[in-house]
């Protein structure tokens, strides 16, 4: 302390090295940061151990009751000849590739509607956001069963147009569709993010375009979409990852079974059944790592594609 004070006294302002005091201040500032991160680090400990344990278990035959036995790649090769696993992949892919674009489109549509400076915006925003808070919850999936039940509201409505009652939840041809509709309905969180993004777009662009006589569609295509593309990109990645990991909807809709006839057997649901019902924890671990690779691959693809359509305007 005294040494540095002496140094400071003899050195001209310009060449004075960063004062130790400053370094200490930075350390103090960093310490605060680390302190805030501490809960995350502690949480990490609880994640990192199971994380690597499951990587090890993926290469073993492990039934939870007797010690795991190393079997190399057998779990992974077995997946290719497991019809239920292939079915679960199909369900998960169909669900993801149908519901993600549709729910993002719905989110963007509602966000644009709300962006017109209507009165009571916070209220509307909350109302549209509400389903996302509830969407994956047990209570709503149960409620959904009634809405789509044989005597439910949907059939009553369709009945007015002479459509025969559809078994939305118990017919294997419709059960997944019902869950996709439920997913689309929970567009709240991308909607809120879109809304924030829309408000960042300077109004002058639209004014200029309007002066030039651009149509509404033209303004959407040439102003809104490009300027919003980073946000679309973010929402797409988020939804994609979440959708691949869907579990609750399939679990609750048919009492943990993925029924009817495995038409809602999501990948994660099948993983859970293997691990906890069939005592194939090694296989379940291998499935979990395979899913990680699948998600990583699709995320990477999305990132690569971003070059062509995401516009980081400077």
């Amino acid at each position: 302390m005294t040494a540095s004070a002496a140094e400071a006294a003899v050195m001209p302002e310009a060449v004075r090295p960063p004062a130790p005091l400053r370094g200490r201040r930075r350390a103090r500032r960093d310490r605060a940061g680390y302190l805030f991160l501490l809960p995350w680090f502690i949480g990490m400990l609880f994640t990192i151990v199971p994380f690597f344990a499951s990587l090890y278990l993926a290469f073993t035959d492990y039934d939870l009751l007797t010690p795991p036995e190393w079997i190399g790649l057998e779990n992974f090769t077995a997946m290719f000849s497991d019809p239920a696993l292939l079915q679960s992949l199909k369900v998960t892919f169909v669900y993801t590739f149908v519901s993600v674009p549709l729910s993002l489109a719905a989110a963007l549509g509602v966000a644009m509607m709300l962006n017109r400076g209507i009165r009571g915006l916070p209220w509307y925003r909350a109302v549209f956001y509400l389903p996302s808070l509830l969407g994956a919850s047990v209570a709503v999936v149960l409620l959904w069963r009634y809405v789509f039940g044989l005597d439910g509201i949907v059939n009553a409505f369709l009945g007015r147009f002479g459509v025969e009652a559809i078994a939305w939840t118990s017919d294997p041809d419709y059960a997944l569709t019902t869950l996709i509709i439920l997913h689309i309905w929970t567009f709240g969180s991308p909607m809120v993010i879109f809304l924030a993004g829309l408000r960042q777009i300077p109004v002058m662009y639209y004014e200029a375009a309007a002066v030039d006589g651009a149509s509404r569609w033209r303004r959407f295509r040439s102003i809104t979409l490009p300027l919003l593309s980073p946000i679309i990109f973010f929402n797409l990645i988020q939804s994609l990852i979440a959708s691949f990991q869907t579990f609750t909807q399939g679990f609750v809709m048919n009492n943990g079974g993925g029924g009817p006839a495995n038409s809602t057997l999501f990948y994660n649901l099948y993983l859970y059944q293997q691990g906890f019902n069939q005592f194939n924890m090694g296989y379940a671990s291998a499935m979990a790592w395979t899913l990680l690779v699948i998600i990583a691959a699709f995320t990477a693809l999305t990132f690569i594609s971003a070059k062509y359509w995401v516009n980081y305007d400077n």
């Binding site: 149960l142 069963r145 017919d171 009492n255």
Partner: peptide, 9 residues
Amino acid sequence: PAGFFEEIG
């Protein structure tokens, strides 16, 4: 008929 039994819980 088919689909009559739903998981009504």
